[in-house]
Design a protein around this nucleic acid. Structure first.
Lengths: 187, 187
DNA sequence: GCATTAACGTGATATATATCACAAATTATC
DNA sequence: GATAATTTGTGATATATATCACGTTAATGC
């Protein structure tokens, strides 16, 4: 039970040892260096990653060249470019490592095989996707109804672990405000 | 094949007649009047609704009393307060009818039973939830990277049918801008 | 059909936040 | 451990958008 992926799945559905080995056999392990890209705009998105350790971010670069962070992903989080991965299109997002990272990653094919063969994994992914939906909706409402300071406070409360690992510049980019404005808030 | 729910499901998974009847037996039909609430902040959220006809909106009322529209739902769309429904909590959102509406609605229990008994329905819901995720992520990026005018243009392009059915005030509230600003754009 | 309510447009002004610019402090890297 | 690169703070200014206020038009409901 020391495997972090197993722990995460078992928060939602129980697994026998052999079931977990079966699950795991559909994944590969990847090791990545700080600054390394694992998904690049305009390129295919072959995998969804489950982060074992380290820290990554997904971000969109708009036409004026500005970056907007969609997601951070630390231990225990899933990350990919959903649109690219699930629709088998080229990425509109980039994903790179803020810290050296290790992930379990899986292809769409393997994910589908896994779900077909082990019904409870489909349930697991549905639960995860649902939780993701709720989080995204809350983020939208936050962007629409809160000012910079309130959004920053909410971030502090939601992700206290991240504050010390991520430069303010990136937090600003996640919150949709300029780094200067964030700097003037933080104290 | 004249049933709109069946059509929607069959876009993703094929159904036999008896399978569809089985699916349908898990739903009830609701008829609602313009201005009628089907979900209210602070109250339970017993159902997710599939819209057969009419038009609804879900919205959040912030502490200053301002409304922010999270979603419109017309024919063929699903709507609920996800957080309330899936976590069996009281609603943080409201949902009401912009036009008289008819829905198929289903409880969480029935939805789970249905998925357990008919595997392909779980796949269907997972696909829908995934598509929803992608849309929400795009909306977040739009809020962060586009100005009012660009967001309005994007809305026009994405939902051309809605423009003529929804007052500009509501579109502004969906886009996260004031009705005056939208008015100054629209022409 | 008339009264009420909602929707819309538009001016004047306020305000939050972005942008530009620069220096200081901190962190990474060979 | 020294050099380069990144991060951070802060002033001055610009700007998009919100807010307030009012009149007009259109839609709704009995």
């Amino acid at each position: 039970m020391e495997n972090i992926l197993r722990q995460q799945i078992e928060k939602i559905v129980p697994l026998t040892d052999s079931e977990f080995l079966f699950v795991l056999s559909h994944f590969s392990v990847g090791n990545y260096k700080k600054h390394q890209y694992i998904v690049q705009q305009e390129n295919p998105v072959p995998y969804v990653h489950f982060v074992v350790k380290g820290l990554l971010k997904s971000f969109y670069v708009d036409k004026s060249g500005k970056s907007h962070i969609l997601q951070f992903a630390m231990k225990d989080w899933w990350i990919t470019d959903n649109q690219g991965f699930y629709n088998e299109q080229n990425a509109t997002l980039n994903i790179d490592c803020i810290e050296d990272a290790q992930t379990y990653y899986i292809t769409l094919d393997n994910r589908e095989k896994l779900c077909a063969e082990l019904q409870k994994m489909e349930f697991f992914f549905l639960q995860k996707m649902t939780a993701g939906n709720i989080a995204l909706q809350n983020r939208i409402l936050s962007l629409m109804s809160k000012n910079s300071e309130e959004r920053y406070m909410q971030f502090l409360q939601l992700y206290p672990d991240l504050i010390h690992r991520i430069p303010k510049t990136l937090i600003a980019s996640y919150l949709g405000i300029s780094r200067e404005t964030l700097s003037r808030l933080s104290h």
